[in-house]
Simulated assay, not measured.
Amino acid sequence: MGKAGRVACIFTPYVLTIASLICIIMVGLGCTKASSSTLNNLYFIRLDIQNISSAGSKTTTEIENILSEHGITSVTANDVSDVLSKLQDDSTLKDFYSIGLWGHCDGDISNNKYTTDSCSKPKSEYYFDPLQVWGLDNDAVKDELPDDYAKIMNIYKAVSKWMFIAYVLAFVTTIVEILVGIFAICSRWGSCVTTLFAVLAFLFITAASITATVLFSIVDSTAGGLLDAYGITFSMGKNMYAATWLAVVFSLAGTLFWLFSVCCCSGRSPYNHKGRERRGAGMAAEKAPYTYEPLGAGAVPYGHQHTTSYPPPAANEYPMTNANHNGHTNAYEPFRHV
């Protein structure tokens, strides 16, 4: 298979790698531009606080049972109500907050329609701190929070940092994979190197996707189950998770096809000059039909009668031929008789 076949062989993994890169870029662009409805719908999790109420729709006993189910024993239902009452009285709060990779967006809700007003400035290793965003990071509010709040936020911050780094590494290795993939056209060694970067890109994007899914699923199941009674709801961003897991699928498929190009689809043409010489060396020329052959071992082939040799052959060296005194053979080769 020649160069054309080699190009066709790596076309599929190249397209899959580009598709994975596009999905990773979409994840990174989520919640970065308030004027783009497409990017505003790319979020990991969204907090809806338009119906926040400090009273709650459940009794004090039910709230405390929910807290104990999640291992929170240092806070009471009254503590939760006190903090939420301050939020309820704050007129600067938005109706919803969408959390992305680089920041968050906020806006208002009208007739079940979400309208984004602003987005935070993109920041590396971003994590959503509700008290800081809502302007409640003062000592009065922190004193009413449970002792475990700081520990939980530290864990959330560390996991968010790792998730951000994993996405960045996935983006960088995928870019390198695309650039190195150009050399895969030339040889299988190029495919081998490209496959190594493809494996790294797949591992990083998979780790990032798993981290994001697990992290915000835990937030949704724990905080969402508790704060739902106070009118605060959480929703997972389906578009964001679709993008990140499509990146995983494309990256995996591209890795498998890059590996296939290492084993198959050589770029060397079977019709090169050296190959012809090697094959021609062991092949005898086919004889054309209706040709003459000398009868005797020492007979001269037809057409060589006028070949001069030095020294001249002896008179009896070629039987059934006539040699003149100059050594030239002018005789003919007789036909074979049946």
Rank of each mutant, 00 (worst) to 15 (best):
K94M: 09
N138I: 00
I24T: 12
F202I: 02
M163E: 15
W162C: 11
D108R: 00
A212M: 07
N322P: 08
G225D: 07
H328M: 14
A158N: 11
K94S: 11
T291D: 02
P146E: 12
N154G: 07
L215A: 13
S53E: 00
M283W: 06
Y241L: 00
W134G: 04
I205T: 06
I49H: 03
S221E: 00
V172G: 09
Y302D: 15
I218K: 11
W162G: 05
I22N: 07
A184E: 09
C264Y: 09
G303D: 12
V176P: 05
S81F: 08
S221Q: 05
A198I: 03
Y149E: 09
I182H: 01
D137A: 11
G71Q: 07
W102M: 11
Y114P: 04
Y241C: 11
K157L: 08
P334A: 08
E62K: 07
K238G: 09
N239L: 13
D147L: 10
N65E: 10
Y292T: 03
D82C: 11
M240G: 03
D117L: 15
A198S: 15
L67C: 08
G107T: 14
S53M: 12
N316D: 07
P311H: 01
A77R: 02
F11Y: 02
Q305P: 08
T233V: 08
L179Y: 05
N51W: 05
N112S: 15
S120F: 01
A201Q: 02
G303V: 04
L101R: 11
P294W: 13
P313M: 11
C263H: 02
P312W: 06
S209I: 13
N65T: 12
A55Y: 04
V172W: 06
I165S: 09
K161T: 10
C105T: 00
L21K: 01
S187T: 08
A243R: 07
L252T: 10
I22G: 06
W162R: 10
